[in-house]
Design a binder for these strands. Structure first.
Lengths: 217, 217, 217, 217
DNA sequence: CATGAATGAGCTTTCATTCAT
DNA sequence: GATGAATGAAAGCTCATTCAT
């Protein structure tokens, strides 16, 4: 299975797509992520996909609908692991210590990010300009993840592993660092040399203990 | 002085702009940040600025040149405080403790960000698509800031205030958190209720000590 | 078949043109020859052709490509009769005397000129400004015709019918007179009264004997 | 006096032109002859002339008026030698033989053509598209020259030097050959190697005796 | 289903011309 | 007289979308 087919498969696992549809999606993802949604013409997508321009509009009423059909499944994917019903309990059992939970989360999100990187780029680019997308993202994705993470954090607080601070603030800080790390690693400087394991560990340790030297240690 | 004039003044302090040019710049910033560069037509900018479309092209040979004339000065502004020659020494004296340095830096960058927020949005949006911008940003801005912050961190490490870790990693973590905070505060959720002083303090404390509860306390 | 269809057929005999394409070509020829290439707008051509402006650019990437698509086949037509492989031999047999060859050539070129007159005008107008056209014309058309005519002249010289003079100079003089005649007749003063047969004969006689009165006759 | 000043002086001998006006004229001639009237912008002329665009329109109400102000004096120049009142008599006396008259005319027109070549090009280019120019040229220039040449020819006919044929036809043939020669020499192939004296002589001999070999010689 | 020619609104840019300075 | 900023119409060209085949 080629890399593109993996991407398609990741995004549209259950949906039935014709062969041409897949080609259109792949071409659109490539062009949108390279040049931006507004700067990509449907003609260009059609050529890259090897289909007639009319074929695009047979499957997607408008260019925007094509965009949405790409980005929407990504949102579902992103929220996925956090909305499994008994996520908390599972986590509680699986990861006794916050560090382990963080490490696992980073690895988990990293896997998704790498595979879907172009689609993630498209989503981030278009969120500011597509109110529909923005709303969907903020209320359905960001909020849910945020709430769930807050819940998890609370449970760790109850176990006395985390400092006393409103869980929302802790969630913000934790999420910022995980996403900041992945963003720096894969979007800003993908070409630098990275020792992933080491840098992950540093990020985890930083989240836990900050960067102040402990005098008494 | 209106808010717009402040923005213009902040960006183009030394440059001499005609009245029409200012109007064009203000209109372009507004439209670009609202709808994106590619989705904004020069016709729209002209109307909003109250000038003829031809007037835009008298001052800026192309639409892209107009974009660049807006974003380039921002870059200079961003890098400004970090390239003052003896920044390190000043800081060493002024801020004995890392916390104070962090707090001051957050406040300092916050001021710039608030005033130039729309331009910052434009820059972030277009960096992925304008290779010229991207290169300028990465090599001239990001790298310089990164190096300078690394230097500052080293000096605090030498004073024994920071943990032993490659300064570059520490710099990444610190910058991520400051920008992540400002981004969340002003770009993602500008409309939420924020207790700025408190949240700044939390961010600083987090950077210093992480979010693990200290057993010995 | 209308006059326009004849023109189109003459130029694009083997090519397959859609109906709209034919209309565009006809309209472009008309406008270009009347107002000149640079002074004709694509909007005007579209209106005259009864198609949308976009349709023009679907078939021809640029306005210049439209021009070239009109003029290029003319060049092929012009060179046509001179590049038939065994042209010389045929001529040798067919026209024993130079006079007969001249007369036949004038009639032959006249027929092409009349049918394609507007296109000829366009070509002559644009040769000085389109380097591509100029080069193509000089090297591929003018040179070939010139060489072939020189060859023919040489064969008549060998038969003792023409004076001793470098064939190139003779060719220049002969061609100048034939084209000069046709140009005067059809381009400069098409509306004067012309006795074509008589004037052709005069031209032929002039080319042969000049305009000096033969004292000894 | 530079080459440009010579050109200006040749065209506008008696007129009083300001320094800026001269620069405008020179720049316009250069651009018009290189790119064509319609394809030359006033902005381009202004830049090449080193004046403000407004200055052009201070001297010439429209772009077309600028064109006319360049081409009109050329027409006067062209007709010049032919309208001197007693041209015929002078010629009769000066050039007893037709050959000498032809030779002198070629040399005379050659001098004008070389100096004013760019302006001649402009005129030839624009005659088909500027009705005003066309009319002026045909009725005032071509006709007058034609008539005068016909007259001269008649006088040579009366002296028994030229064959019996309507003088208009003879005039057409003679003019065609002189212009055809000069056009080939200076416009079509200015860069070829030319032995001017020899080629002139050949042209004269051809006009006189044609290119048929005289059996009795 | 798929095509691709056709559309016409809209795009960026250029133009000749005006006019306050 | 000279300037050059300003104009807005018009230029060449692109676009998302439609529809007959």
């Amino acid at each position: 299975m080629s890399e593109e087919e993996v991407l398609i498969h990741q995004l549209f696992d259950e949906e039935k797509l014709t062969d041409k549809q897949k080609k259109i999606i792949v071409a659109a993802i490539e062009s949108f992520s390279e040049k931006g949604y507004a700067a990509t013409s449907t003609n260009e997508i059609a050529k890259k996909a090897g289909v007639a321009e009319g074929t695009i509009f047979r499957h997607y009423k408008t260019k925007k609908e094509l965009l949405m059909s790409i980005v929407a499944p990504l949102m579902a994917k992103m929220i996925g692991p956090f909305v499994v019903n008994d996520f908390n309990k599972v986590l509680d059992r699986e990861y006794d210590r916050v560090e382990d939970f963080l490490r696992a989360t980073i690895e988990n999100r990293r896997a998704v990010l790498i595979k879907l990187l172009p689609v993630v780029k498209i989503m981030l680019q278009e969120i500011p300009f597509q109110p529909e997308l923005r709303e969907q993202f903020l209320e359905q994705i960001a909020k849910k993840i945020f709430d769930r993470v807050s819940g998890i954090i609370e449970s760790y607080q109850e176990k006395g592993q985390l400092i006393e601070m409103p869980p929302e603030s802790l969630a913000r800080l934790a999420i910022t660092n995980i996403l900041g790390y992945l963003f720096t690693r894969y979007v800003l400087f993908p070409d630098s040399h990275w020792d992933d394991e080491l840098e992950t560990e540093r990020t985890v340790q930083f989240i836990m203990h900050g960067l102040a030297r402990k005098e008494s240690n």
